[in-house]
Design a protein around this nucleic acid. Structure first.
Length: 295
DNA sequence: AAACCGCACAACCGCACCTGA
DNA sequence: GTCAGGTGCGGTTGTGCGGTT
């Protein structure tokens, strides 16, 4: 399937920075007519730009609901958290930060946060045969999150079956389509993973995990990686497996450093048995849930 | 004052996905 | 099932600006 050219380069369409006049034309047109087809928009609005350029200008700069100004500490924290979970899925991260665009977040990450982590010796994994590792980590984190969410819901259902939250939780926990109810039912501030799992991010992740060929490739990487880890230096294909094991271990150590940083410096994660979780330990949780349930 | 450097961010490019014919 | 158009997304580049030498 060939890619459709975004615009006809032979028409000499304007590129580069937008002028205030162009901005005004674009804003006026969209506010009056909506954007409709982006491809047709420039002609209709009297702009000598390609549709793609117009869309970008609108979504990243001119949209009225865009929040300007520096990122707050809370937003920074959210970005680090979300990035640890979904990776470079800027649109997903942006969806959780009202008024912020994916481009803005991406830029902020690349210019501020990434540098901050690097300064602390937390470089990103190097490119190479095991470059799929971070994705595998994210998958594993999601699975952990899902299991913990289910555990939490079961616990809530048991502890607070008389309360509305508990009732909804019980229903939701037994169903795979729990998204909508969960959103409104049990969204405690600390349940970041649960909220994420119930959000568009989680939804998107679930859909991709179910079918996408991309994920199949990721699965292959995970399988390969885990086989390499299981086989170890003495296994079949020993030299290749050994190399993969070394790379995987190095990345694992690096990733753990990142998680430790996030946990210790930002108080984000609650690791147990060397694992990864945004939830407090379940025993602490149980106590809190009981307190809440019987108040 | 000029050159240089690093930073921040707007904008572009190309790929992937979705949808309808 | 295939194809082409439209759109969204992530990576990268270009550019302006302020600070430093």
């Amino acid at each position: 399937m060939g890619r459709a050219p975004c615009c006809d380069r032979t028409k000499g369409l304007k590129k580069g920075p937008w002028t205030p006049e162009e901005d005004k034309l674009l804003v006026d047109y969209i506010q009056t007519n909506g954007h409709g087809s982006w491809r047709l928009l420039p002609k209709l609005a009297g702009l000598n730009r390609c549709g793609k350029s117009c869309r970008l200008r609108w979504t990243n700069y001119l949209r009225p609901d865009i929040k300007r100004g520096p990122f707050t500490a809370e937003e920074q924290k959210s970005i680090v958290q979300l990035h640890a979970i979904v990776g470079n899925k800027w649109s997903m991260i942006a969806a959780q930060l009202p008024g912020r665009t994916d481009n803005e977040i991406k830029n902020y990450w690349n210019t501020h946060l990434k540098k901050q982590l690097r300064r602390m010796g937390l470089d990103e994994p190097p490119p190479g045969p095991a470059a799929g590792c971070p994705a595998a980590r994210h998958m594993a984190q999601w699975e952990t999150a899902r299991l913990e969410a289910e555990a939490r819901l079961s616990l809530l259902a048991t502890a607070a079956s008389s309360s509305s939250c508990g009732a909804i939780a019980a229903t939701s926990a037994s169903s795979s389509s729990s998204t909508v109810d969960l959103k409104t039912a049990c969204a405690r501030p600390a349940d970041i993973f649960l909220r994420l799992w119930s959000s568009d991010i989680g939804d998107s992740f679930r859909r991709k995990t179910a079918a996408a060929p991309v994920v199949k490739r990721k699965d292959a990487v995970i399988k390969q990686e885990s086989q390499a880890l299981l086989l170890g230096p003495g296994g079949d294909d020993s030299s290749a497996a050994s190399n993969e094991t070394e790379v995987a271990e190095a990345l694992e150590a690096e990733y753990q450093m990142f998680l430790n940083f996030a946990g210790e410096e930002l108080g984000l994660f609650h690791g147990r048995h060397g694992g990864f979780s945004l939830f407090p330990p379940l025993d602490v949780l149980a106590e809190a849930s009981l307190d809440t349930a019987f108040k």
